[in-house]
Write a protein that binds this DNA or RNA. Structure first.
Lengths: 230, 230
DNA sequence: ACAAAAGTGTTAGGCCTACACCCATGA
DNA sequence: TCATGGGTGTAGGCCTAACACTTTTGT
């Protein structure tokens, strides 16, 4: 029968939300993609996302789709751009609000309903469905901007980590190398790191110091922002 | 008869674009608002904007509505956030892609079809229709961020201007006062200003030097960005 | 004569950058 | 023993911030 139950005086586009999920494996930035099981673009990799319900916001939609498709719950997502090119979806006019999020790799447990989800290192990323290549490029450039004005890392690193891991994270995101000493000084001066445990007395200097973020200072700096010149 | 000609299997929200238009009167930042002639919120002031056609992008919509409502043509608008709260429009579910633009006051000629449009200084702005107060607050905060990383001014100031006017612009946007000498030095060091005309030999030092933007350097800096610490 | 606006330079402190060596470990 | 990774300090340059006086004009 006629399934077209929702009618309007003027044409309305469909609304969707998509998510670019960034993770960090200790060396490289990774992006979480899902393989499409249905047409269009069946078999192609795509960003997690989907159509918006009529009673939810774009952000709620993004978080719901993320949980359905990857098992990630209560993820903090940040809206960054709305894609409204007329032909971006072959089925009908779809406007998509794009978000990004930073998560720890360990939070995504493989093997459940999320079996179609996989983390890709940047150089492995295949060509994506729809205009998702474009969305991903813009997300990466926003991430680069953001890292210079707000602390990032808490969301991506394990609870305790070494300075080298933190430096690797910054280098992976920005694609440049830093002087190790200068990086140490800069980070320590910010005051957002605490030593996670004192170095055991007998331990050699070969084993690196482990840090954790000082949540209060971290939140404070996140609030007021800063400038990192790299 | 039944005017509901467009039907879908699932409900679709309506899509709109709104624009926050910033101008500068030499002393204060101003915002261009229009008075609503129809319900809902008839008589209230609102941001220029309106519903998206099915064959245009959000940005095209913003520019079209802007021209229709204020006479501004070919304005460069920048998308900054999409508002999708469920109850933000009392008529139906409407998702709005918000944009902002910088224009010279002189570009808006009053008295034509745009007779409902008026420039408001920040402290005069009344409570607005829909969630436009919220949209405006976010636009202002984006403008403040932007001024620290890209040159702004070319779009807002007349072609030739004095250093004091430029300083007033920065002070108006950021809401803080600068030391005059330091501001001079900083701006001149950026290299985006040229003296518009040499000081007439007999002119006194009371009449200020007039500058214009050096388009090449300006575009270059806009491209690669910079950091102004204020 | 006084208030108001424009123009101009210096100094001190902080931040950024570049750079080199030692130690401990595992191969 | 050699290569690798971790830890550490300093010196020079640049930018920033703070700061005062002179000139001219309009009132």
């Amino acid at each position: 029968m006629d399934e077209l139950k929702y009618s309007y005086k003027y044409p309305h586009p469909a609304m969707a939300s998509d998510c670019v999920i960034f993770g960090f494996d200790g060396v490289s930035i990774r992006v979480l993609l899902i393989q499409r099981g249905v047409e269009p673009f069946k078999g192609k990799w795509a960003l997690p996302g989907g159509f918006m319900n009529i009673d939810e916001t774009a952000e709620e939609c993004a978080r719901r789709e993320l949980e359905e498709e990857t098992g990630l719950k209560n993820t903090v997502v940040e809206q960054f751009y709305t894609f409204s090119e007329v032909g971006r979806d072959p089925r009908e006019r779809v406007v998509s609000v794009a978000h990004y999020a930073l998560v720890r790799l360990s939070e995504v447990k493989g093997g459940d309903d999320a079996s179609m989800a996989r983390w890709f290192a940047q150089e492995e990323i295949p060509s994506l469905a729809f205009d998702h290549d474009h969305i991903l490029r813009m997300a990466i450039s926003r991430l680069k901007e953001r890292i210079c004005f707000e602390p990032i890392g808490f969301e991506l690193l394990p609870e305790v980590f070494t300075m080298t891991e933190l430096q690797n994270l910054y280098e992976a995101i920005l694609g440049i190398k830093f002087d190790r000493r200068n990086f140490y000084n800069k980070m320590l001066k910010l005051g957002i790191l605490s030593e996670a445990e004192p170095r055991p007395a007998q331990a050699s200097r070969r084993v690196p110091l482990r840090y954790r973020f000082n949540a209060m200072k971290y939140a404070e700096l996140k609030q007021k922002g800063f400038r990192l010149e790299f």
